[in-house]
Design a protein around this nucleic acid. Sequence first.
DNA 1: CCCTGATTCGC
DNA 2: GCGAATCAGG
Length: 196
Amino acid sequence: MSWTDERVETLKRMWTEGQSASQIAKELGGVTRNAVIGKVHRLGLSNRTEEGEAAPEAPAAAAAPAAAAASAPEAPRHEPVAAKSAPEPEPEAEPAPVATFTPRRPIVPAGQPLPPQPSANEISPEALASVREVEKRARKLTLMELTERTCKWPIGDPATEKFWFCGLPSQAGKPYCEAHVGVAFQPMSARRDRRR
DNA sequence: CCCTGATTCGC
DNA sequence: GCGAATCAGG
């Protein structure tokens, strides 16, 4: 493969959009991410900041909204957590900062469709027990250690040091490990004849 | 371990 | 010019 005008154009467009080198390489085909990065440098566009602009813009406050937009178009409303002792798993509440930060309107590969959002939050005793057991063995990953195959269930209070992500192997295509999938995705039947 | 971009250097 | 190998890092 060679760098035809068309391929270079695609490269420029995607790079400007904030796509990663590997994503661009995948899109183009026939090249590795190294080739893409090399080309990017030769083209002199390694600096992704727009021309002229001297505004590096701090991503500080933007993190949460960005994550929400990327992974959960409809962020579920949280019930105020009753007791601090029991971090009360939210029904499929995406941890706010989960999405990887990428600049410039990246085209998010589209995660899994969000499961139905149960309004009630009733969890089977078995599932709860399983979760408690699993959370003892949590890998306690930090945000940046999360990958597509690690459980992203948040554990603890984000406002304190005692906060981490489960990190156990996630179910294929799911954001959580088996135990947390069990509490995050509840079949209607499980909640059916429960009353509060 | 998964990923990111940056750099080097033989081709 | 090209890009694999390597480096540095989250």
